[in-house]
Design a protein around this nucleic acid. Structure first.
Lengths: 249, 249
DNA sequence: GTATATATGTTTCATTCGTAACTTTTTGGA
DNA sequence: TCCAAAAAGTTACGAATGAAACATATATAC
């Protein structure tokens, strides 16, 4: 299968954080030159960083390194998300690795789409590819996540009303619904959602295993979940009972 | 003199964009290893990028590469700018290479300073060093300059009122005053200035040689210029006649 | 003034790097 | 089914790299 080896390299890196070129070459049974070409590719996609003799994941809690985890599923989810968008649309995209990939896919495949986001990471990430407008919402800059939070978000978002707001999550449970790690970011999500007709949650099915700490409380909105096909049937059933639409990529 | 050689490397790079390690070594009469150590240093400062066998400036119209040009003067100007700020202050900083250095210097040397900026570049640039808060103003994201413009800036800035607003410029003449290349960014400067008591323009004296295309029209504000000591006497005189204070670094 | 540390620069060497030319595998028509 | 073009992988090699051990200059303390 195409790119199979690149995925293996990624999952090895997710485990080990740092591997020598020589070791990769031995492990995967191909020449070092081949490995280097793969690594060059992965570096172009910002998934890894190269140093003399090694390859390593970008940096600890960077979105880039989170992208390496379950990259294939995320790619599929992002492609499906892009299908929701038409040329010329405006869409809200919140912070998170799935969202970043979705934004990139939209920027690459659609024409003249305005992407409104509270993520400085995403703005920079799609910068080289975007042909439409990028709008960054103002706020307090969270240094680790590179996203913007705080009351300014609400002031900024009032200038817009859109159909789709794409958001990430770090967990789910039947009681809490979708969750998040951070109060400030959760509030940013709510503020952005308030000016959108429909919330689309982008997440790998694995996240359904456990809930995070801060419930997003999105119950008043029309919510869809866009996830991979591995989502278990029982969870699928529970989500449907809660009037949440499920789209699988 | 300390770091003399690094400066020479920089100015060579500004001319040529791309030089081999071997050539640098021959030109400056030191070993390749020494050159490599210098280049490692410069890369740490984000002034250059290294590729196998070469060193090159970051990328064409990136702020990083503009930093390499007159780096020494800019450093001095940035240090002087930082002296204006006290621990705990809030300061506006606009986009531009001098401003980026000033923001970095403030972040490094002051405690708990809130930096409010319309430059996503600066937010990211000072991210690792900042101990205080960074606030990014919302707006349309200009892809090349990574700064934010448009009417949203005004909405965001209304939440603040500060003493100093630090801005860059690309030129000056007696008739136009300070200028800029871009209407949108000029308006962002005006909007930010409106909530500040004093405008501080950070610029190398070289910029006084010619005016750009878009006048900033700052005449209603108290304006200071922070520049290097090479500013010619006649210009110094003209600025003083226009009630513009001159601070030399 | 001398000794001790610290920064700067050099030499050497095994290892890694990118490029080019060549081989194998996949792909997509006729 | 077969063939040509494109993609993926390999081999080979000179040049560039980082690390370590050593040398020299500069600063700091006593």
């Amino acid at each position: 299968m195409k790119k199979q080896r690149e995925k293996e390299i990624l999952s090895l890196l997710v485990d080990r954080r740092r591997i020598e070129v020589t070791e990769l070459s031995a492990l995967l049974g191909v020449s070092q030159v081949t490995i280097r070409k793969d690594l060059d590719q992965l570096e172009k996609m910002h998934l890894i960083r190269r140093v003399h003799g090694f390859a390593e994941l970008s940096s600890e809690d960077d979105i880039n390194s989170r992208l390496a985890w379950h990259y294939e599923e995320k790619t599929k989810i992002a492609e499906k998300a892009a299908e929701l968008i038409q040329d010329g649309d405006t869409v809200f995209i919140e912070n998170g690795s799935c969202c970043a990939l979705a934004a990139l896919t939209i920027a690459r495949t659609k024409k003249n789409v305005t992407i409104v986001t509270n993520s400085a990471f995403i703005a920079d990430y799609i910068r080289p590819e975007a042909n439409g407008q990028i709008v960054l919402l103002g706020g307090i800059y969270q240094k680790e996540s590179q996203c913007l939070v705080g009351p300014m978000i609400r002031d900024c978002i009032m200038n817009y009303h859109v159909k789709y707001c794409m958001i990430g999550t770090d967990g789910w449970s039947e009681k809490t619904g979708f969750t998040n790690k951070d109060q400030m970011r959760a509030q940013a999500v709510r503020d952005m959602s308030a000016s959108a007709e429909q919330i689309v949650i982008l997440t790998e099915s694995e996240k359904f295993n456990a809930a995070g700490t801060v419930p997003l409380n999105l119950s008043r909105h029309q919510v869809s979940v866009l996830t991979d096909s591995e989502i278990p049937d029982d969870i699928r059933k529970k989500l449907t009972e809660q009037q949440i639409e499920i789209i699988t990529a």
